[in-house]
Design a protein around this nucleic acid. Structure first.
Length: 921
RNA sequence: GGGUGUUUAGCUCAGUUGGGAGAGCGACGGCCUUACAAGCCGUAGGUCGCAGGUUCGACCCCUGCAACACCCACCA
């Protein structure tokens, strides 16, 4: 028999599945659909993806096997900013600037790059076993989706929900584009708080002292604000100061926004370069002076001396000049939150510019209601808080980006700046009845990437056309995604879909945890602790891993640290574990916590589990292959062991089904793991050996066991298939057709359904008893250091009639499991030999000590048991001695305690007798 | 500043209507027993973060506190 080797089986099966179109909706049964959160088309698979898509694939395969008309819609996102950045960097390596190429040529380069790298992520998803419907794969920039984008933009504009306006927006000076609030990340950084003196206009000898973290913006100050209740400054309100370094006089205004406690209580106001100052500027009708270019250099609105300086150079210059004038009072250290562009890491500037916005509140209201009403349910429930917090305080969405890669905004301007919006220039001319000679130019901006992905669930199904796919598969059933994307994407899908389709995009939102490394650290390129899921599947040498993690590192010191940590954590690199073990690990760690630690030890454990299942199947086939007659015979007799494992299978099936219905992948994985390993392998297979191997076994019983073994093995493979697709397919195909369906694939076979009629409590009680007897002997052997090979005499005493019946019924099983030299019953009058003993409920089990047992060891073992039992007894007796317990607790609980006490007392008595007799030796 | 989550064995985590604390890994001891040493058998190890409260009874419900993590908003 060959060994379990995932590399040898996994890829071939995927190719076969795909070639046979097994991923396509069956066209039969109730629809079940999930839209993939579209990965960046030029991206590569990271651990978060692998985790997320593994979860979805299990759901999809589960539903498909249950007979649903199942669609997992594939597609990719054009990812405006990051894709444009990647291509720009590539060009930079060839010393080409995008500007040199021009817009058209640049966009063409991006398409080239997409063609070249767009397959990477698709191939990686295939390696994961993802049963995506590739045939209808979409791309946010393809023709159909672009049409949906146009449609939505034009309709929203015509309804007055999209507008163009001059607003203060987050500006990334490196990319030279606006970005949304959600694309700005603020982190605390060490900085300074500078205190300046601003001379009063009426009395230049006196000053107001303002404190700022951004000295250079003083060139754009148009007011100084104090709190109207501040006694220190009340008398100055309405006066003016002279703004140093410029010749401007600016007013001292009063506003409650100013915190008297902070700094000096005086705030310089720069409406063009700070969001709060901008609001204040509007309240007080202040002049707005923009002093920065789109590259964040000082522009012509500032004194000539500073023009052209970068903002940080300008800071230095301003500080030097103020100090020279004696106006710099002091500098304090100060930590402040510095806003940076998520992609570039550049410090973001608030900048006044013309942008397009969605008037979001009218869209948000029904979207909030849909979740409040339960039309959309978040799992776990409390993830709704993130959604509500964002949606209830939502600000208009800036949707224009000053990029070249993306959906061009469908707006045209004439020479006078009039705006015309339509699906094309031709439509615009017709719609607005424009003269043919009128020159129009299209808005150069593109839409925020999230604008197109907001339409994802319905645009991928053919909207704006009313396609059968849209009819069948929308609303989708569930969206599986991370919490980081709730505001960015989930909320916008809900808003747009409700608006344009009139139904929710999905009924449920499953929020999974964030995958971290074994130390709980977020995986990131800069930390060098990231893992490529395929390196776990295929394995990677240490040197290659180090090279991968330290590639493109700007700082050599950081690279050194990463190399050291990597060599320590993976001294032998990573071995090739295969896809199934990796997937099973994801299910096992997918609990309800916010972060899930990824530990290679777990993968190893589940690789071992796969190996276990492989070997169990090998064993099974030894008794299945070539036994067609036995396997198809009708004349069979099932033993209690068969009935027990069949019963257990109903339990595990019910547990897995419940877990899947409640999205508890961890519990599903656990149930399967425990059934396969602890019940099927450790007990059933062991118990079936004597029956199958013993030539004296009656034929009907042998056939019964053979059929049960085949049946449970085959069913278990189906039960586990959503989680271990490759391994289960391989093993299932190895089974003879007489014990399975004659099919090319397990993928489309029926998922097991728990059948309560097959639950057999009698058989369960039998096997529970049998396990206790076997465990009691094993415990004695283990503790007494008796070799498993050595046969020992075993005696029973004090058993009930049922115990006697069971000993008889399971005699041959017991013989093979506990290797007794002989098994005998002691009568009530027989003298008990000195022995190591075990207790199975009322029945005593004795292993005589002569030549076998060490007295001291046996005493220690008995003492341990005595101590444990008497602790239990004390607790139980204590409870029953408490009158309020007896009075107030439910009768059945009280009775249970009483029964327990009786049991414990009898057990204690027996143990004590045994101890006494051993001690007296 | 506001909010959410976490705290259970050495490590990582389960514990689903409050009724005798579990798993995997690791540790220790013994086994090449004819599916599997990627295995088998046995053993040890926990005041369930701390302090109160409710209850006959709390890992579980309530209050407060602490530590850690994350999210949102940011005082120039």
């Amino acid at each position: 028999m060959t060994k379990y080797s995932p590399q040898d089986i996994e890829q071939a099966w995927y190719e076969k599945w795909e070639a046979n179109n097994y991923f396509a909706p069956s066209g039969k049964g109730e629809a079940f659909s999930i839209a993939i959160p579209p990965p960046n088309v030029t991206g590569t698979l990271h651990m978060g993806h692998a985790f997320q898509h593994s979860l979805v694939d299990a759901l999809i395969r589960y539903k498909r096997m249950q007979g649903h008309n199942t669609l997992w819609q594939m597609g990719t996102d054009h990812a405006g900013i990051s894709t444009q950045m990647v291509v720009t960097e590539q060009l930079a390596a060839q010393d080409i600037k995008p500007m040199d190429l021009g817009r058209e040529a640049f966009v063409e380069k991006v398409w080239d790059w997409k063609e070249q790298s767009g397959n990477t992520i698709s191939q990686q998803l295939r390696r994961l076993g993802a049963s995506l419907h590739w045939e209808t794969e979409r791309f946010t920039m393809d023709e159909g989706l672009s049409r949906a984008v146009l449609e939505v933009f034009v309709r929203l504009y015509d309804e007055g929900l999209i507008y163009r306006g001059k607003r203060l927006v987050n500006w990334d000076p490196q990319l030279k584009t606006s970005i949304s609030d959600l694309e700005v990340v603020s982190e605390e950084e060490a900085g300074h708080l500078w205190h300046f003196r601003y001379p009063l206009a009426d009395n230049p000898e006196e000053h107001l002292v303002v404190a700022t973290t951004r000295p250079e913006t003083m060139l754009g100050d148009t007011a100084v604000a104090v709190n109207p209740d501040d006694e220190r400054y009340k008398h100055l309100i309405g006066q003016e100061i002279i703004l140093p370094l410029t010749d401007r006089r600016v007013p001292i205004i009063a506003d409650h926004y100013v915190d008297m406690e902070f700094g000096t209580g005086c705030v310089k106001i720069t409406p063009a370069h700070d969001f709060n100052d901008y609001d204040m500027g509007r309240r007080h009708d202040l002049e707005i002076i923009n002093i920065l270019t789109d590259e964040a250099r000082i522009n012509e609105n500032a004194p000539a001396k500073y023009q052209g300086l970068d903002r940080f150079e300008a800071r230095k210059a301003v500080l030097e000049d103020l100090e020279a004038l004696g106006l710099l009072e002091k500098v304090d250290d100060h930590t402040l939150a510095v806003p940076r562009g998520e992609r570039t890491g550049a410090v973001v500037e608030p900048l006044l510019s013309d942008q397009w916005f969605v008037d979001i509140k009218p869209l948000a209201e029904p979207a909030i209601k849909a979740v409040e009403d339960g039309d959309i349910e978040f799992i776990p429930k409390n993830a709704e808080n993130i959604y509500f917090a964002w949606m209830r305080n939502i600000e208009d969405w800036c949707i224009s980006r000053q990029l070249w890669w993306g959906h061009r905004i469908p707006a045209w301007y004439d020479a006078e700046g009039n705006i015309y919006v339509g699906r094309s220039e031709a439509e615009v001319r017709q719609k607005y009845e424009l003269d043919e000679t009128l020159t129009l130019s299209q808005d150069p901006d593109v839409l925020d990437t999230w604008f197109s992905s907001a339409l994802w669930t319905f645009s991928t199904l053919g909207w704006p056309d009313q396609t059968p796919e849209l009819e069948t598969f929308h609303s989708t059933d569930i969206m599986v995604t991370g919490h980081d994307i709730i505001s960015l994407w989930v909320s916008r899908m809900i808003m747009m879909t409700l608006r344009f389709i009139g139904e929710v995009p999905f009924h449920k939102v499953y929020i999974h945890g964030l995958v971290t490394d074994a130390e709980g650290q977020k995986m990131s390129k800069s930390k060098g602790n990231g893992l490529d899921p395929l390196d776990i599947v295929d394995g990677i040498s240490l040197d290659d891993l180090v090279a991968k993690r330290t590639a493109n590192m700007m700082q050599p010191r950081m690279a050194q640290r990463i190399e050291k940590a990597t060599r320590k954590e993976y001294p032998d690199g990573i071995m090739a574990y295969g896809t199934d073990p990796l997937r099973f690990t994801f299910y096992a760690i997918a609990s309800r916590t916010r972060t899930v630690r990824f530990d290679m030890k777990r993968v190893e454990g589940y690789r071992n589990f796969c190996n276990k299942l492989w070997n169990a199947a090998s064993f099974g086939r030894m008794h299945i292959d070539g036994q067609e007659d036995d396997l198809t015979a009708a004349d069979v007799e099932l033993t209690p062991v068969d009935k027990w494992i069949i019963s257990e299978f109903q339990h595990v099936t019910a547990a897995v089904t419940l877990a899947m219905e409640t999205y508890r992948f961890d519990l599903a994985a656990k149930a399967i793991y425990e059934f396969v390993w602890d019940e099927f392998c450790d007990w059933y297979l062991e118990l079936s050996k004597p029956i199958l191997n013993d030539a004296d076994t009656p034929a009907a019983i042998r056939r019964g066991t053979r059929q049960t073994l085949a049946k449970i093995l085959e069913s278990t493979l189906r039960l586990a298939h959503p989680f271990l697709p490759f391994l289960t397919e391989e093993l299932w195909q190895q089974l003879p057709v007489c014990v399975r369906t004659d099919s090319d694939t397990i993928m489309t076979q029926a998922y097991p359904i728990a059948n309560d009629d097959l639950i057999n409590t009698e058989a369960e009680a039998d096997i529970t008893w049998l396990k206790k007897v076997v465990s009691a002997v094993r415990n004695i052997r283990g503790e007494m250091d008796i070799s498993p090979a050595r046969e020992i005499p075993v005696m029973f005493a004090n058993g009930s009639a049922e115990d006697r019946a069971r000993i008889e019924r399971f005699e041959s099983l017991l013989k093979s499991l506990i290797r007794p030299e002989q098994m005998t019953w002691l009568g009530p009058d027989d003298e008990k030999p000195l022995a190591a003993t075990g207790l199975i409920d009322e029945m005593e089990l004795l292993v005589p000590m002569a030549g076998l047992i060490d007295k001291e060891a046996e005493l220690a073992r008995l003492d341990k048991a005595l101590e444990r039992k008497s602790r239990d007894k004390e607790r139980t007796a204590g409870k029953l001695g408490n009158p309020s317990f007896v009075d107030k607790a439910p009768a059945d609980v009280v009775q249970k305690e009483r029964d327990k006490l009786v049991e414990l007392e009898s057990a204690l008595e027996k143990l004590q007798q045994q101890r006494d007799s051993v001690a007296s030796m």
